[in-house]
Amino acid sequence: MRTIDVSVITQNIKEMCIEANHFLSEDMEKALKLATKEENAPLGRQILEQLQKNMKIAGEDMIPICQDTGMAVIFMEIGQEVHFEGGALADAINEGVRQGYIEGYLRKSVVKDPIYRENTKDNTPAVIYYEMTLGDKVKITVAPKGFGSENMSRVFMLKPSDGIEGVKNAILTAVKEAGPNACPPMVVGVGIGGTFEKCALLAKKALTRSVNERSEIPYVRELEEEMLLKINESGIGPGGLGGSTTALAVNVNTYPTHIAGLPVAINICCHVNRHAIRVV
């Protein structure tokens, strides 16, 4: 048994909110750099160059990469030998978000009620997922999610007979409808299987995978590669203003499902695909 005071979680979450909003992970930076070299639309290339310059300014001046610093989505993978003390874990996580968004000059984009829409003024509450794992460590992933792209995400409850072609159609439909609204070049997270909510969660979690890491399941890897090619043939391009760089990666996660169903979720993320990961 290992005891962790929840104040340690607060401190880490606070730092991770600030870090994720100012610095992209290395795989995202590399993917953008490569795309800039390969894009042949003049305006598309100019936009990709601006995005790289934007990231440089964000880090140097400590100004968020994007003004939409997101709703904080937090994955907690907790080793079952860990014991927390010092207060409720959810409170500690939200306190970290509160401190990070206030002290880090991040935008407060959360409203208390979806209909009455009063801003909570500290970006809480976060959306928190807990998962139990083996061991005595806690893996924390902080993924601030902007809503330009979140709004273009979709869930399709396909029939088993729709098969892999149905899945491909669903992905291409979501991406084409998203077009310029989702701030391309995008990262496309896809969940296949599970239940209605499980496939959405798979898609969300797929966005936290490295853009260079392909699935270990052969047909899923092929699907990821084929979809990336197809999406980049759509012409949408950087900013939706034309070109060959519409997506930087398609990450697909799968899960067993029911004999009667084929749920597919497409969670679209803009080029500011933010996630900070730490193991405590």
């Binding site: 936009i47 601006q50 995005l51 310059k53 934007n54 990231m55 300014i57 964000a58 001046d61 100004i63 968020p64 990469i65 994007c66 003004q67 939409d68 935008r107 407060k108 984009s109 801003n119 003024k121 902007g146 330009g148 310029p180 701030c183 900013g239 803009c270 080029h271 500011v272």
Partner: peptide, 25 residues
């Protein structure tokens, strides 16, 4: 350009809230 908020901020030289201050951002 969407998602280039840091870069675009450099072209803004002054900002003043003139209405609906209670709406924050």
């Amino acid at each position: 350009v969407g998602g280039a908020g840091a870069l675009l901020s450099r072209s803004i030289i002054a900002s003043e809230v003139i209405a609906y201050d209670d709406l924050g951002t």
